[in-house]
Design a protein around this nucleic acid. Structure first.
Lengths: 349, 349
DNA sequence: ATGAAAGCGCTAACAA
DNA sequence: TTGTTAGCGCTTTCAT
């Protein structure tokens, strides 16, 4: 077992090959044909390098070239269907371009966001993708000060390109679907569609509420404030809210727009306490997607954000080299339920 | 807008403060009290550095100190419940130790695994966490050659600590649960429990099959090869296998051990074609966890791998500085169903 | 077709 | 208490 104490450097290879460090360098980083180094020496050097397990010290290269080969991305959390898909696409796109992706989560903490971005900048990332930022302005400031190209994804920000989900369109389509499937038999307060989950002043939720409001108003004439329950993302809170709502209405509303998977988890927490036929007279939609969510006992229409398109589009912007502010919206997909259920919805099989 | 063309260096700060570069350096990297630099100069330098938005060039520091402050982790994919939780824990643990986590996915491609590890090594990562590797031997070789400390997580490997899920125990508990809930009323071939999904020769699956076999044998006397359907991880394949099985048996088996979420997704794809009461006489378990999976129309017992304990334990090993081979097993959790269902299982509420 | 030498930004002896 | 100096491993003119 050849257990070298140290990684070999170009100097080691130079000595071993009889060539100079600069020759070795250019051979080993692929610039040798343009330096008109003979095929022979090149081969010989590559040979030796390979046999000694040479690999370049990317820190040294980065220092010298003043670029690191790293692209950074920050996002709120890893353990979330949407963001982890984002990571997957980010990685593929970065690799395609010969860049090494560095992904960091910041737990929706503005302080942590700044710190993390500063760290990434210190590692000389060549660009920064900022996904779902809570404080875009501050991040924008930091990146501009450091002169690092950056883009916003999912949530828009100032002074840079923003590639975001078309929340308005997604919510509009989902609302239309819910409205079209609300049973006409239900009357009174229960006849109304409700919106639950999310924070009214976050960008995405506000766009969705806007779409929900407008679409519902167009069809039903009016939407009361009471129909919008923007109670945050915590499952527990959503569980309580839906329970209270059902108490107030004397049953489930005819239509329910759940604004996130976490809220949906909470809603389900209440649903498990309900009799099986409680869902026969309600149309349910969830803005966000989980494959198992589509297999529940009752049909759930889900909106799946197009995470891959989001990142791929962001990289296309990156490729242009133009980091001037602009807004690009990506339409999400509506996913039909695949539920095993009986009753009104049998047509879905 | 002070848009400096270049990030300031310690030399800029030195000039501006009248101190020497080394003084600035030690002030700015926190080693100044041990260098007995006066509180005054320290304050002054920090002041100036802050006002100019100085932040250290971590590449240069890394080059000089021959360590980068980076910890690497490779895993198969990001967009998976288990691995994304792993990422989340990895990040928290790395941060706690003042290290910058670099996470890369390798898509279960042995070639890609090697390439990625080499890249991370080139960035001088201080240690490498190898999660779910397909070719542990090769990776072990690469890391040893480069003299980089490494550990295996989830799937074990040679010449380094391995922190893995206790697959045997998890499968044993899940099998016991399934067996204890299999309806006695079912007779004939359908009375047997079946195992579906996974690859028989991968480490985790083989351990689980072993536990399934042994546990079922203890209770029922014998397990036939035909009861083990290790048909891989693809949902489509699992869907076909379960359909064929149901055809052969004339219905669902009394017990079903599904070996992964993806296989479970496939199984569900077949289940949607079944009548609602088809599930009244079967006990279902899934090795892997999804919160929505627990909300299906029929009860599903799920095993949740303890991803956080896995990573935290791995970091504890890392902290010891001892990278000699050893095996540590972490017990997974059994999650009871929360399903909305009627019939035999009402006691679960 | 190849080599010599300077320097990227930082740290760590060693001086003073 | 602080400054000087010599690199870390690599790339890149500029020579030859």
């Amino acid at each position: 077992m050849p257990n070298k104490k140290q990684k070999p450097t170009i100097y080691d290879i130079a000595r071993a090959s009889g060539a100079s460090p600069s020759t070795v360098s250019s051979v080993l980083n692929g610039t040798w044909k343009s330096r008109r180094i003979s095929e022979d020496t090149a081969k010989r050097i590559q040979q030796i390098a390979a046999s000694r397990g040479y690999s370049a010290n990317l820190q040294a290269r980065g220092l010298r070239k003043a670029k690191s080969g790293l692209v950074g991305m920050i996002l709120p959390v890893h353990d979330n269907r949407f963001f982890s898909s984002i990571s997957q696409s980010f990685e593929a796109n970065a690799r395609e371009r010969g860049l090494c992706p560095v992904i960091a989560s910041t737990l929706r903490d503005p302080q942590e966001e700044i710190r993390t971005v500063e760290t990434l900048i210190s590692y000389a990332v060549e660009a920064l993708f900022i996904v779902g930022a809570t404080d875009p302005e501050a991040l924008s400031r930091v990146c501009r000060a450091a002169n690092v190209p950056f883009l916003f994804v999912d949530l828009p920000g100032p002074d840079a390109p923003s590639v975001v989900s078309d929340n308005y369109h997604g919510a509009q389509v989902l609302t239309q679907t819910i409205l079209s499937e609300m049973p006409a038999s239900v009357t009174g307060k229960r006849a109304r569609p409700y919106f639950i989950g999310g924070t009214a002043d976050d960008y995405a939720t506000s766009r969705r509420i806007e779409a929900f409001r407008r679409t519902a108003t167009d069809t039903l004439g009016q939407v009361h404030d009471e129909q919008i329950i923007a109670c945050g993302y915590a499952p527990g809170r959503a569980a309580r809210e839906i329970r209270d709502l059902c108490d107030r209405l004397g049953g489930l509303p005819a239509g329910l727009f759940v604004n996130s998977l976490t809220a949906f988890e909470g809603v389900l927490g209440h649903f498990v306490t309900l009799p099986g036929d409680a869902f026969d007279e309600t149309a349910i939609g969830c803005y966000d997607y989980d494959p198992f969510g589509a297999f529940l006992q009752f049909p759930v229409h889900m909106v799946r954000q197009n995470s891959d398109a989001l990142i791929t589009t962001a990289f296309e912007q990156f490729d242009t080299g133009d980091f001037s502010p602009r807004m690009i919206e990506i339409k999400p997909d509506l996913i039909a339920p695949r539920t095993i259920y009986r009753g009104r919805f049998v047509e879905f099989g």
